Amino acid sequence: MKKLMVSGALALAFSTSAVVAEESGAFVGVDLGMSNAVMTQDAGDFGAFDFNNKSASIGNFRYGLLGGYKWFFTEKAGLRAYLQVNNGANQIPAGLDTHSIINTLNVMANVDALYNLYSTQESSIGLFAGLSFGYAIHSGKVVDDLKKNGLKDPSGFDMGINFGLRTIIAKYHGIEFFNRFGVIGASATSTIQPQLSSVPLDAKMTTLQPYSFGVRYTYNF
C-alpha cells in the first residue's frame, strides 16, 4: 500500500511539473542586432532630368531597450505587448566610394503571439510572431542635405513584422533570437522647384527598414 501511495505521489508530482505553464507577468530587456535602411526619392522624370534615386545601406549595429507584459491563456499559448526603443546608424551610399551616415531612433509598440513548444516549472522554449508599430526618427547629414534641397524630413510612421525563437531559463531569464521585416517605411512628400524648369515637382522621400535581426535578453518578474 505504501509503495502504491509513494508511486502515485511521484507520478502526480512528475505530471504536475511537466505541464506547468509559463506564468503571466511583466518583463524588461535589452537587445543587440543588425539592420539596414533603404532611402528612395521619387519625383518622376522631367525631360532629360531624372529625379528618381534609390540608396540602400549596408547592415549596421543597433541596440535598444524594451519592457512590457505577457499573458498566458493556456499551458502553451499566450500574448505579449511591449514598448521598445532602439537606436543605430546606417551608411547610405552618397556617391562613388563615399557614404553618408543616417541615424535612426525607433520608438515602437509591439504585440506578439507566443507559443511554447516545451515547458517545465523552470524553463520553456517557444516561438513568437507579431506586429510592430512605431515612429522612426531619422537624422544626420543625409537628412540635413534633404532639407537644404527643399525636401521634408522623412521621419514618421514605421511598421514591421516580428518573429523569432524565445526561451526562458531558471524561470526569470529569457534569451530570444528575433527578426523584424519592415513593410511600411517613414515618408514625406515635398514640392520642389527644379533649377532648369518653371514647373514644380512633387518629390516623395521614403525610408524603409527592410530587416533587422539579433539577440535579446529579458528579465521576467
Rank of each mutant, 00 (worst) to 15 (best):
K3R: 05
K54V: 00
P93H: 07
G67K: 07
D153E: 07
G8S: 10
F73M: 14
S139M: 07
Q193A: 14
V20W: 08
L127T: 02
F61D: 07
N53P: 00
G47Y: 02
F73P: 07
D202F: 06
G126A: 07
V111H: 07
G59I: 01
L96V: 14
Y118T: 13
I137W: 14
L96C: 10
S15R: 06
L165V: 04
A186R: 13
S132H: 00
F72K: 04
N179D: 10
Y82D: 10
L10C: 10
H173G: 09
G64D: 14
S7F: 05
V111S: 09
A43T: 03
D50C: 00
R216N: 09
N106G: 11
N149S: 15
I175S: 08
N87Y: 15
L165K: 00
T104Q: 13
L165C: 05
L10W: 05
D145W: 03
V111Y: 06
Y219R: 07
V107M: 12
Q193H: 10
N36F: 01
L83Q: 07
F157G: 09
N110R: 02
A21P: 00
Y118D: 14
V107I: 10
L79W: 06
I102H: 09
Q41P: 02
S197V: 04
G185Q: 04
G29T: 07
K3N: 01
S7H: 03
F46E: 08
P194T: 08
G25V: 05
Y115P: 02
V215C: 07
M108W: 02
D202V: 04
D45Y: 00
Q84V: 01
P200M: 13
A188P: 06
V6F: 04
K76C: 12
G164F: 03
I175Q: 09
Y172M: 12
N87F: 15
L131F: 01
A170K: 09
N36Q: 05
A56Y: 02
D31V: 04
E23I: 05
P93K: 11
V6K: 00
M108P: 02
T16K: 00
S190L: 12
D144P: 01
D145Q: 13
I184W: 06
L151E: 15
G44N: 01
L117Y: 03
G214W: 00
G78A: 08
Y135R: 09
N149Y: 11
A13L: 03
K171D: 04
M108E: 13
Q84I: 05
Q209A: 13
Y219G: 09
V215Q: 08
V143H: 12
S198P: 04
N149K: 12
I137R: 04
R166K: 05
K141S: 13
I175M: 09
E122C: 13
S132T: 02
G33R: 00
T98A: 12
M34C: 02
S35M: 01
G126W: 01
A77D: 11
D97E: 15
L117K: 10
I125R: 13
T16P: 00
T40S: 12
Y82P: 00
S100W: 03
H138K: 15
N87V: 14
S119N: 11
N103T: 11
